[in-house]
């Protein structure tokens, strides 16, 4: 009788320890995903911050490109309205965020393409520096997105794997969305037969 009680208590203690460590693991995993997300937002914000200066610089040399300049400004103001709640990193909210930011990328691409036609602009020191900052920011975006996806993948695996998935559903830990690779998926691995 006493033995049985001891065994029951021991089993319950083991389960409690498992639940506590499992729960804490989920919490820190989610925290990592959130930290990675805030880095993603930082680098996108960095790109947004470069735009006013860039537009002003280009305007001085290429007055005839109003349409392109306006599309950059419009895409920027649209993107600033879309923010993602770090507690709701779902597939949909990330896709929406990515789409709005993707428009900025496309508009900036067009702006840099037309700047090729203006030698004076290309030789402008300020413009050259902005271009370097912009190129660096694009690489930062790619890097932070990759890091976010890696941490989300690690976390999602934790949430889905048995038996921790029981804990995850009990305490409402849901899976996080990923960044889809953009149109230029040339870097994605291709397997051919």
């Amino acid at each position: 009788m006493k033995k049985a009680l001891i065994i029951i208590v021991a089993v319950m203690a083991v389960i409690a320890i498992w639940a506590v460590t499992g729960y804490n693991g989920l919490v820190s995993g989610e925290e990592k995903v959130r930290a990675a997300w805030s880095q993603v937002e930082n680098v996108y914000q960095r790109r947004l911050d470069l735009i006013p200066n860039l537009v002003a610089t280009v305007k001085g040399y290429a007055q005839h490109e109003q349409g392109t300049l306006e599309s950059v400004v419009a895409a920027r103001s649209k993107a600033t309205q879309i923010s993602v709640d770090p507690n709701m990193l779902t597939e949909e909210s990330i896709a929406e965020f990515q789409e709005a930011q993707g428009e900025i990328g496309a508009a900036l691409g067009r702006l840099l393409a037309i700047s090729e036609n203006y030698p004076d602009l290309k030789a402008n020191q300020n413009f050259m520096e902005l271009q370097a900052e912009l190129a660096g920011t694009e690489n930062r975006i790619a890097t932070e997105r990759r890091k976010y996806n890696e941490s989300a993948r690690a976390y999602n695996t934790m949430v889905r794997r048995f038996p921790r998935n029981i804990l995850a559903s009990m305490f409402g830990f849901s899976q996080k969305g990923y960044f889809e690779s953009d149109d230029n998926a040339a870097a994605a691995p291709k397997v051919e037969f």
Binding site: R146, N149, E150, R153, S181, A187, P189, V191, F193
Partner: peptide, 22 residues
């Protein structure tokens, strides 16, 4: 067999972490 291999390849490419070139 081919289909199976293709399936494996697809599964691997999906599961593979998004790391870059070697």
């Amino acid at each position: 067999m081919r289909k199976f291999l293709k399936f494996i390849a697809a599964a691997v490419s999906v599961l593979m972490p998004a790391t870059l070139a070697a």
